[in-house]
Write a protein that binds this DNA or RNA. Sequence first.
DNA 1: CGGAATGTTGATATGCCTCAACTAAAGTGG
DNA 2: CCACTTTAGTTGAGGCATATCAACATTCCG
Lengths: 242, 242
Amino acid sequence: MDPSAQILLRKLKEHSRLSAADIAEINAFSYQLRHLQAGEDFIRQGDVPKVAVLVVSGMVARYHMLLNGQRQYLSFHMTGDLPDAQAMFIEEMDHAVCAIGLATIASIPHKEIVKAFDRKPPVGFAIWRETLIDAAIFREAITNNSARSMEARMAHLFCELFYRARASGLARDNTFHLPISLTQLGETLGMSIATVNRTLNGLRTSRTMDFRNSTLTVQNWRKLVQIGEFNPRYLHLKKAPL
Amino acid sequence: MDPSAQILLRKLKEHSRLSAADIAEINAFSYQLRHLQAGEDFIRQGDVPKVAVLVVSGMVARYHMLLNGQRQYLSFHMTGDLPDAQAMFIEEMDHAVCAIGLATIASIPHKEIVKAFDRKPPVGFAIWRETLIDAAIFREAITNNSARSMEARMAHLFCELFYRARASGLARDNTFHLPISLTQLGETLGMSIATVNRTLNGLRTSRTMDFRNSTLTVQNWRKLVQIGEFNPRYLHLKKAPL
DNA sequence: CGGAATGTTGATATGCCTCAACTAAAGTGG
DNA sequence: CCACTTTAGTTGAGGCATATCAACATTCCG
């Protein structure tokens, strides 16, 4: 079986049940690999993609570009995610997608995927579910950035990323490689770099978590969850990794 | 034809093309009407709905409830919207939905809708597209509440609501009935009531827009768009109402 | 008409942004 | 391989925007 197909299947199985015939459909897609440099854009605002992207390794992020050039990061995606599945049904991209650190992606032609939906509706439902979980993540980000303190925002973001990484088997023990800069963290959570740094320092001092050299170390998961008011139900996964 | 079906069709046609057979499927759904009081919850966090809701008249809002009882409004929905279409594929609700002012909704059993997807995939694609536009609205809200000034946030929200209302034929001229309180506005945009009021006053003084007695009056659309950095492309509608 | 909810406005406090100076790390060319 | 340049991270000081609090006005609704 194609290794990209395997990655996609593993992911979809986190929330959906698929028959052998459904799996065969997914395995029949043609996956075109591509390696990305750190920070490289592979989809820009205004693009009309003809292929869907699957994250094979590394991390990828969606972002809005404001008129003054400021960025707002919207979500982060890791192995198994489909960061632009939506483009199958809404033509023009309203945001850009870039690599965070080095990353590998696989492209799948929209045509093949849509054809699979016609033949095996459960395949469509699984991918639809994937886009719905994305939407739930966006909703949580609205709440995070609008209603929570700086410390809570930070804690919540790391809770989510760590939890998702664990669910996808990408993190072992209490560490997780996350090649994101403080500037990007600020552009995700709506805070200045100075505050990002000080907030991170606070969590470090209280021995809750440590984020340094692109590596997250969770020292006290329960405390982190409590500070961030993190409740993983919105991720809609079948089984809890923590 | 059922008037609820007509409302739903009108909405789906804003972004999707449907054949006569597709339309017949949608018309065959059984629509159960229900009238709601102002502020009434009809879906709560944790619910597992068996029906999907269509807004027939009035407005409806999704919100998160934080541990301290604070609310965060996530989106507003008007005639033709399906505020919980997602519940067909992700069982448990991660947020609540309530009426804003008086409202009428129609319920459609999930079973009937899913059956229609099997028979006429374009019906499924149209509703999928609807949920994807919702996601785009959520993304925009992240950016709005995280990266824009108080005045810009306010302007952007009103731009979006007015634009969507126009697209659905719910607003004529420059006014639009919006039964939302200042408190709710604050809980939407992440600002205190005092600031909501003062910001509204600024927009009124500059003769950009006036929001009073539950009525929005747009005095200078171009200025409002400019202040809010509003670009309607993210709504992915086929034709611009303004 | 009375009471409650909502909106209005001013005064005060404070959390965060901005700016700036500095340190550390990473990447580059001689 | 080391000096040099650039980028990323760190920390302090100061000012400002916005939250908070409080008092009052208005509207809504029974």
